[in-house]
Amino acid sequence: MRFSIYRYNPGTDAKPYMQEFDIDTTEHNCHMLLDALLAIKDHYDETLTLRRSCREGVCGSDGMNINGKNGLACTTHLSNLKEPVVIRPLPGLPVIRDLTVDMTQFYEQYEKAKPYLQNHNPAPAKERLQSPEEREKLDGLYECILCACCTTSCPSFWWNPDKFMGPAALLQAYRFIVDSRDTEKEARLADLTGPFSLFRCRGIMNCVDVCPKSLNPTKAINHIKELMLEESV
């Protein structure tokens, strides 16, 4: 199977280039794209650089651009890929080396969402009660794995990565806004006003298209907007 992979080591390469690899995926027992990339690293070129950890789609390490679309290498079946398989780093973030990008801006935007429960009432001796219906509101939100596939597929983020929080961070903002145990809903909504943090979302919906966990950040962003309207009424 033929792969065309983005290569760049700032220490040795004047500029990035694409490198082709032909590998026998059957011989190396590869089913997923990550298997093939690791087979290349183990058997052909150990300098190929990428992040990987769980290899089952829950740690979010191996987000990359696969035949033009962001996704996780470990949950992408080789049998679904057209050749040559063109692999590039996630777009919109600085490349450190090969498929490894600098995620600093992505994490900074995540932190701006204050992604932690705030409840200024004294904690009870046992758990805070939450009905199954209240808890269900967190489904589709808390499962985010911070792989950055969504945010780095978003043109609004490419244009304003320092000001627009991006879909992943906004999904988490909404996750805490709708948590029945959080007492800071108004302050959280107030934090998101202004032209950039949230309102740069133009509803392009690339985020929904690429999310490897089938989450829907656009819907969450729209819910936040609705809540802002309700609150201001």
């Binding site: 808890r135 967190l138 948590d179 145990r181």
Partner: peptide, 15 residues
């Protein structure tokens, strides 16, 4: 739970 861990719930609201 107080930190915000989203435990699955019973009908009575407990974990």
């Amino acid at each position: 739970e107080h930190m915000g861990m989203p435990f699955s719930r019973r009908n009575d609201g407990k974990i």
